[in-house]
Design a protein around this nucleic acid. Structure first.
Lengths: 214, 214
DNA sequence: CGATAATTTGACCGCTTGGTAAAACATTAC
DNA sequence: GTAATGTTTTACCAAGCGGTCAAATTATCG
C-alpha cells in the first residue's frame, strides 16, 4: 500500500531513478516535436514503454514532466555563456562560444526545440527564470563585451544584440532544421552543414566585430 | 436550404468575405500563440465572436483555416527575398533586406510565429512548399550572392548560410520576443529594440561581408 | 409581399484527453 | 517465511475536443 509517489522516500530506489530517466527521455522526444499542448501522456508512455498510469506513478501530471525537462535544459543551455571568460582573448572567446552553441544545436536539437517551443508560446512556465537568472547572466556577460569594445579589442557594438544574434544563428540549425534541410537539398547528406555553418558564422562575427581604427 | 459551404457559389457575398476575414484574423492570433494542436476551434470562434458551428460553416475543418493562413504567410514572407536585386549594389541590397525582414518581425510577429511553430514541429503541412518554391527562390538568390562574391564586391562566403543567418537574426525578434524583452528589461519600453537591432545587424553583416583584399 | 437561398443556432455524437481508484503483483526488510 | 512497502495493471471518469445535423433565423431577389 503505497501512499508514495516517489518523492516521499528521501532515498530513491534504482528502479525509480531508471524509470524516471526513461520517462524524461521519452518526454523530450514527444514535447520537442509537438510542443506542450500537442504532446499527450499516452504518447510519452508509449515511447517510454510503459502504461499511462504507470508513468503517472512517477510524475503526477504532464506539467510535472515538462517542468522537470525545462529546468534541466535551461541550466545546461546556458553553460556555454557561463564559460565566456572576461580574461580571455575576445576573438577566441567569441569564436569558441559560437562553436559550442553550434555543437549543442547539432548534438541536442531536441533540447533546443523544447526551449524554442516554450519561448515561442510566450514562455508561460519560465517567465521568472528568464527575467531573473537569465537576465542576470546576460547582463554580466554584456558588461564583459562592452569592456572589450571600450578598450578597442573589438568594434563598438550593442552587446545584447550581439548575444541575441549568436543565439539565433546557432539555434536556427536545430529549431529550423527541416527548413535548412529542405533548402540545402538532400545532396547535403551527413552533418556537413554544421561545419559550413561554423565557418560562415565565425567569419561573419569575427570580421564583423574586428576593431576598426577609423 | 443551403448545400453551400461558401465555395459553392463562384461569387462570394460581402458577408462571406467579411466573416472569413474575421475568422482568419482570430485564427492567426490563436494559432500563433498556441500552435496548431494547441489551438481549439472554440478559442478561434470565441475570438472571432461567433459560434463554433457558425465558424465551421465558413471553414469545414480546423486544418482548412490553418492551411489558408499558412499559404498566405508563406507568400508574403518571401516578398523581401524576392525583391533582392542582382543588379543593385550588394551592400545596400543586403542592408535593405535586413531592414525589411526586421520590419516584418516588428509589424507581423504573429505571422512569424505561426510559421516558426509550423517549421519547429517538422513542417508537416508545408514540406512540399519548402522543398519546392522556397528552395528554388533561395537557390536563385544564392547564385546572385555567389556572383557578387566572385566579382569581389563582397567577401567570399557561403550564400546559403548567409541567408539563414539573416532569417534567424531578424525573426528572432518576433519568435523569441518574450525572451528578448525579459533580457532587455522593461526599461526598454516601446519599440526601440528594433532600431538598435537594425543598427547592430547592419554593422555586423556589412562589415562582416566587406570585401577583403587580402 | 412570398419564395428561395444564405446564415446562425442549439443540441448532440464519438473520440481523445488528463487523471483517478483500487486491486494485483513484485520487492525488500526482518 | 511474512509483513510492509514499492510497482504495475485494469477499469474507469469527467471534461474537452473536432465535427455533424436539423431546425430556426435572416438576407436577397422578383
Amino acid at each position: 500500500m503505497a501512499i508514495p509517489r516517489a518523492a516521499k522516500t528521501q532515498r530513491r530506489t534504482r528502479i525509480q531513478e531508471e524509470k524516471e530517466e526513461r520517462i524524461l527521455e521519452a518526454a523530450l522526444d514527444v514535447f520537442s516535436q509537438n510542443g506542450f499542448r500537442g504532446a499527450t501522456i499516452d504518447q510519452i508512455a508509449d515511447a517510454a514503454g510503459m502504461s499511462k498510469p504507470n508513468l503517472l506513478y512517477y510524475f503526477r501530471t504532464k506539467e510535472a514532466i515538462h517542468r522537470h525537462l525545462i529546468d534541466r535544459v535551461l541550466f545546461t543551455w546556458l553553460e556555454p555563456l557561463r564559460a565566456f571568460d572576461a580574461e580571455g582573448n575576445p576573438e577566441s572567446e567569441i569564436r569558441s562560444y559560437i562553436r559550442r552553441k553550434l555543437e549543442m544545436a547539432r548534438d541536442f536539437p531536441r533540447e533546443s526545440r523544447l526551449f524554442a517551443n516554450e519561448v515561442l508560446q510566450g514562455a508561460p512556465h519560465i517567465e521568472d527564470e528568464l527575467k531573473g537568472p537569465l537576465k542576470e547572466l546576460v547582463d554580466e556577460k554584456a558588461e564583459v563585451i562592452r569592456a572589450w569594445a571600450r578598450s578597442g579589442k573589438i568594434a563598438k557594438c550593442d552587446p545584447y544584440h550581439l548575444i541575441f544574434s549568436i543565439w539565433s544563428t546557432t539555434q536556427h540549425y536545430a529549431d529550423f532544421d527541416v527548413q535548412v534541410r529542405a533548402v540545402l537539398g538532400q545532396d547535403y547528406a551527413g552533418e556537413g552543414r554544421f561545419e559550413d555553418a561554423a565557418r560562415f558564422l565565425e567569419q561573419l562575427f569575427i570580421d564583423g566585430l574586428r576593431a576598426r581604427n577609423a
